[in-house]
């Protein structure tokens, strides 16, 4: 465990908590893509099935359980508790365009053709594109609440830190997982445009709004 990996996990956790708190405190999930949240919950559920098969560390298991519970809680808040505030009209990204190709790819390109491994690969590929419905929603409405942009920032930061973590592990441990690295790169690139807006607008105290 290096500092980049730990910082990555922490910012991932911060992102998840920010989103949960935002929805809970404002009693509203306006501007949040329920579809992205369902995708993230599916990512965690399919990836962390190994909770039942192997034990890596207390840290590893507890983080997995926290991620899964928080993501399912978020889906529950969006689709049940605060459903009335959910902006379904603007959450129109066609998720089948992500899930079907990602599903197909995970059957074709994986480390081992076994159910657990295919599900793990599926979750890695799916995570890399799971934010697209959320970004699509923001591009459609042309704006995002500042707290939502903080959520996206920490989610992107987590991916960026994981990339540094992989460079570190490659040099110091000879660790190299091409599937995770390529998917992680794709995922980080998707945040670049957003990062630019975050730095140029949100950090200067302006609301994130896109030119019409």
């Amino acid at each position: 465990m290096n500092i980049f990996r730990l910082a990555g996990d922490v910012s991932h956790l911060v992102a998840i908590i920010i989103l949960l708190l935002k929805i809970w405190k404002t009693r509203s999930c306006a501007g949040i893509s329920g579809k992205s949240q369902i995708l993230f919950a599916s990512v965690f559920v399919t990836r962390y099935l190994d909770l039942f098969t192997i034990f890596i560390s207390l840290y590893n298991s507890s983080m997995k359980i926290i991620y899964i519970s928080c993501s399912i809680a978020t889906v529950y808040l969006v689709y049940f508790k605060f459903k009335a505030t959910y902006d379904g009209n603007h959450d129109t990204f066609r998720v089948e365009f992500l899930v079907v190709p990602v599903g197909g790819l995970s059957f074709l390109v994986n480390h081992d053709f076994s159910p657990m491994e295919i599900l793990w690969t599926f979750s890695i590929y799916l995570e890399s594109v799971a934010i697209l419905p959320q970004l699509f929603m923001i591009s459609k409405t042309g704006e995002a609440e500042t707290i939502t942009t903080h959520y996206l920032f920490f989610l992107g930061l987590y991916r960026g830190l994981y990339l540094i973590n992989w460079i570190w592990r490659y040099y110091f441990e000879g660790f190299f997982d091409l599937i995770a690295i390529v998917a992680g790169l794709v995922q980080t690139v998707l945040y670049c445009d957003f990062f630019y807006l975050y730095v140029t607008k949100v950090l200067k105290g302006k609301k994130l709004s896109l030119p019409a």
């Binding site: 991932h12 190994d50 192997i54 590893n60 660790f175 997982d177 995770a180």
Partner: peptide
Amino acid sequence: QLIVKQKDEL
């Protein structure tokens, strides 16, 4: 020899 996979990451 590079280790291909080692699922200790989250």
